[in-house]
């Protein structure tokens, strides 16, 4: 049995719809991981111990256990205690929080790297510590950390394939469905790989734009 790519057009709409879901999950989870990462970083650096420790334990759990397991827990596990989240939302939250923990490490480093004189200047004007963090320190920290955060976001895109296991019809799962009807795994997996790669290129282009923007104001 040779290769036959002519089966693809018939299933292209399913695959492309899957690509849209993948993009949706990635964008949603990227937002959660970005703002969640900043939030976790500020907690880790500035919150009193009673607040810091629960978050620290939370972070350890997310770093130390498989993402796949976390998705199962959020989607199948939480129902038992009465929290029923749709698969898409569970995927966005699971992926988002997982990467928020990674991003938090980056944000912590870059927040600490902002010159101490910046917070002093803000405080002498009368800003509170939180105001100074929000308006002066965090924006600079974010700016400095965009390239490595971008790498995390590309990892996030690839890991979004895991969300297929909780039944979100994203790219990987839609490929599997097409394969189920056609028995053409090679053709569809190659197609899907190409689509992931194209989304990846798109993300990199957006990142480069953002970086150039930032560079202009430095």
């Amino acid at each position: 049995m040779g290769l036959d790519f002519s089966v693809i057009p018939k299933y292209l709409d399913i695959v492309l719809l899957g690509a849209l879901w993948t993009i949706g999950i990635t964008v949603g989870a990227a937002l959660v991981s970005f703002f969640g990462g900043i939030f976790l970083a500020v907690i880790a650096l500035y919150a009193p111990a009673v607040v810091r420790w629960p978050f620290r334990i939370f972070s350890f759990l997310f770093l130390g256990t498989p993402l796949l397991l976390q998705l199962f827990l959020i989607y199948f596990g939480l129902v038992q205690i009465g929290i029923d989240v749709p698969a898409f939302v569970a995927g966005v939250i699971g992926l988002g929080l997982h990467f928020a923990v990674y991003n938090s490490e980056l944000f912590q480093t870059s927040i600490l790297a902002v010159d101490k004189g910046q917070i002093e200047a803000a405080r002498t004007l009368g800003l509170s510590r939180m105001q100074a963090l929000r308006k002066v320190v965090v924006p600079q920290a974010v700016r400095d950390v965009i390239p490595p955060i971008g790498n995390n976001m590309i990892a996030l895109l690839k890991d979004s394939a895991l969300v297929s296991v909780i039944g979100v019809s994203e790219l990987t799962l839609s490929a599997q469905r097409a394969i189920g009807s056609t028995y053409r795994p090679f053709e569809f997996y190659v197609l899907v790989a190409a689509i992931y790669y194209i989304i990846n290129l798109g993300m990199e282009a957006v990142l480069r734009r953002v970086e150039r923007r930032i560079q202009a104001s430095k």
Partner: peptide
């Protein structure tokens, strides 16, 4: 509140670069 009434100028300016 007190700091709003006291202006300070630093050796290294400490302008907000962003």
């Amino acid at each position: 509140e007190v700091r709003q009434e006291i202006g300070m100028v630093f050796q290294h300016f400490n302008l907000f670069p962003h």
